[in-house]
């Protein structure tokens, strides 16, 4: 009965999106009928029963690459979302708690806040290009780059919530009951401040996919022939004007669906986090 109620309250699209994302991360590679990193036939063959999405400019199977690409793009975005959220929430709690205090801790908190504001002035792609340029294009460097791009957003959301929560009556009550400030912070302020960042996770996920694809499109993503959607779009784009649309269309559609699925999951998280009344 509870399950039925739950399903009624949750948009079907959200569930489909969530399962689709997980499904392709786990099984994407297995669905590929050909080796996604090997030339399997002639170049630029249009979609057929043998090659559902056609072949690219080197003769690699586009369907296999789109499926395998899901594991890279989506998995990387998931890792980035977790890292950016954990780092952002911790940072947000710290600066929200300390920035209004006097002394060294307060100065540090205010300094970090200004630094986060400063990062707003730098386009995320520029940060990504610089980090990948310094560290090379690997999964690790891309994860670090994307986490650095995304964590300030989560930190700002958490900080804003901490500023609201820290003066609530239950916080003062905790302090008056004899709890130490750190205990109050982690037992009471943290659980009540992290909700916006949690709700924002799916948005971070979606933007991570987009930024990763954009870096690939700019030619600073993973080395070829790694099946990454942005790389696939970038390498196939010049042929579109003259009729070879399939190497670009299918990874672009996959990208679009992943981002929409992430947005749908965002709706789910939002509803769940607000409780039955909001639903």
């Amino acid at each position: 009965m509870r399950v039925l109620t739950f399903l009624k309250q949750v948009p079907v699209l959200s569930l489909v999106g969530a399962f689709a994302l997980l499904f392709f991360v786990i099984f994407g590679g297995m669905l590929a009928p050909y080796d996604p990193e090997r030339v399997v036939t002639g170049a630029l063959q249009s979609p057929s029963t043998e090659h559902w999405f056609g072949t690219d400019a080197t003769g690699m199977d586009v369907f296999s690459r789109v499926m395998a690409g899901a594991q890279i793009d989506i998995a990387l975005a998931l890792v980035v979302t977790v890292v950016a959220t954990v780092a952002g929430v911790v940072l947000g709690i710290v600066i929200g708690t300390f920035e209004s205090r006097r002394g060294l801790a307060g100065m540090a908190g205010r300094g970090i806040t200004r630094f986060l504001d400063l990062t707003d002035a730098v386009p995320p792609l520029v940060i990504g290009v610089v980090i990948v340029g310094l560290m090379g294009a690997t999964l690790t460097s891309l994860s670090i780059a994307l986490a650095l791009i995304m964590s300030p957003v989560q930190a700002r959301l958490t900080r804003a919530e901490v500023l609201k929560v820290r003066n609530d009556a239950y916080v003062e009550a905790g302090l008056m009951a004899g709890l130490r400030p750190m205990q109050v912070t982690f037992r009471h302020v943290l659980p009540n401040s992290m909700r916006p960042a949690i709700e924002n996770c799916s948005t971070v996920f979606g933007f991570s996919v987009i930024v990763l694809a954009s870096l690939g499109f700019l030619g600073v993503g993973l080395n070829p022939p790694t099946p990454e959607w942005g790389n696939m779009i970038s390498s196939g784009v010049s042929g579109v004007m003259l009729g070879s649309w399939w190497p670009v269309l299918f990874p672009a559609l996959a990208l679009m669906l992943a981002v929409i699925a992430a947005a749908a999951v965002a709706g789910l998280l939002t509803r769940l986090s607000r409780g039955p009344a909001a639903r």
């Binding site: 909700r195 709700e199 779009i233 784009v237 010049s238 670009v248 679009m256």
Partner: peptide, 28 residues
């Protein structure tokens, strides 16, 4: 206001994602 953030973000995000996908598909 907490109730405003997610809807606003989600709506803009959905529009944005559709836009990005369109840009990607038509990037040529």
């Amino acid at each position: 206001a907490r109730s405003d953030i997610p809807q606003l973000q989600r709506r803009s995000f959905l529009l944005g994602s559709l836009g990005v996908a369109a840009v990607a598909a038509l990037s040529a």
